[in-house]
Simulated scan of single mutants.
Amino acid sequence: MSAPLMIVGAADTERLLGYEDCIRLVREAMAALSRGETRQPLRNIVDLNGGNAFGVMPGAMLGGTFGAKIVSVYPGNFALGKHSHQGIVVLFEPEGGAPVAIIDGSIVTAIRTAAASAAATDALARPGPSRLAILGYGEQAWRHAAAVRYVRPITGLTVWGRSVEQAERFALRVREELGLDAEAAPDVASAVRDADIICTTTAAAEPILVLADVKPGTHINVVGSSRAGPAEIANDLVAASRFIADYRPGVLAQGSEFLNAKAAGVVDDAHVVGEIGEVFGGTLAGRSRDDEITIYKSLGHIVQDLAAGWHVFEEAKKLGLGTAAPF
């Protein structure tokens, strides 16, 4: 008889997946991806009515776990106080191929996405104390504010969003819960003017950030758009940057900002200089000069979910958490 299938819900997943651990986990997973030690097809996304989507993302860590994330993406859920990404991460053990765990996919996605941006920031941003600008005030904005402070001393945070009231509430929460000096900005240009690190975490359909707004030497994590279509940054900013993908084939096929710039004729495929895992592994230079603008384009990747999910599964076993279900 197979061992029971463990189900780990949102509260336990949140408890077991700390930012520092997850930053390490995604760094290792992305380095393995770039070394060819994983297997995965491109993500499969089904468009639904109302701008919503359904995604299936399978993959395998060679010699380790394999599985899939199955997730819905409902951007309007934020206004209702719900997760925009809802789903599960299903894990299989490599020895006999049995399913061993179902992990809450909303929390895994939320934490590992921000942790991946933090890891990229550590590799690409200029060292030392930094000002952080966040565009957006949803769940990923909050997670990025929490995660980036683990890799850089943040001297101040500025947030922008379409609702001034929401942005001000976000800044207040940052001050109260993270202890950072934070303020809301009335527009994108003023939000990023003094930033050393920018995280774009919006649902913008058209670019909101242009080259003229960004000072030399800034690092940008472009996170909000996870498929072809919606785009957060303009073609001139893409063209002026050192542009690094989480997964190069994914960005070449589904990275909206890159695809827009390519269609406009201002870049070609060679502009995606490589993957963040190559930077982590030491085979690709990150920042080449102090005044260079660096961009990490995040689509998200299944190996991040597998690494984070397996960590949650192992920790849940140690602590007796989760729910065992017959299978």
Rank of each mutant, 00 (worst) to 15 (best):
H85D: 11
H85E: 12
G87H: 10
G87T: 10
G87A: 12
I88N: 11
V89H: 06
V89A: 11
V90G: 00
F92N: 15
F92Q: 02
F92R: 02
F92W: 15
E93T: 06
E93D: 13
P94R: 14
P94T: 06
P94M: 09
G96W: 09
A98E: 14
A98W: 12
A101V: 10
D104I: 01
G105F: 09
G105K: 06
S106N: 13
V108F: 06
V108E: 08
T109A: 07
T109E: 05
I111A: 03
R112L: 06
T113Y: 11
T113C: 09
A115D: 01
A115Y: 11
A116F: 01
A120H: 04
T121I: 14
T121L: 01
D122T: 00
D122I: 00
D122C: 00
A123R: 12
L124Y: 07
L124S: 09
G128A: 05
S130P: 05
R131Y: 03
R131S: 13
L132V: 07
L132F: 13
L132S: 04
L132A: 09
A133V: 04
I134H: 02
G136W: 07
Y137G: 04
Y137V: 10
E139R: 12
W142A: 11
W142V: 02
R143K: 14
R143G: 00
R143S: 01
R143C: 07
H144W: 11
V148T: 14
V148H: 04
Y150L: 12
V151C: 08
R152G: 06
P153D: 13
P153T: 06
I154P: 03
T155D: 12
L157S: 05
T158D: 11
V159A: 14
W160S: 04
W160E: 04
W160F: 15
G161A: 13
S163F: 01
S163A: 05
V164M: 08
V164K: 07
E165Q: 12
E165G: 03
E165M: 01
E165K: 06
E165S: 12
E165L: 04
Q166V: 02
A167G: 14
E168V: 05
E168K: 14
F170S: 01
F170L: 02
L172M: 09
R173D: 08
V174G: 02
V174D: 01
V174A: 15
R175G: 15
R175W: 03
R175D: 00
R175Y: 03
E176I: 01
E176M: 08
E177G: 00
E177L: 12
L178T: 05
L178V: 09
G179V: 04
L180I: 14
E183C: 07
A184P: 12
A184T: 07
A185M: 11
A185G: 08
A185W: 06
P186M: 02
V188I: 15
A189Y: 02
A189V: 01
S190E: 15
S190N: 11
R193I: 00
R193S: 14
D194P: 00
D194I: 00
D194Q: 14
I197Y: 07
I198N: 10
C199S: 15
C199V: 15
C199F: 13
T201G: 00
T201F: 02
T202D: 09
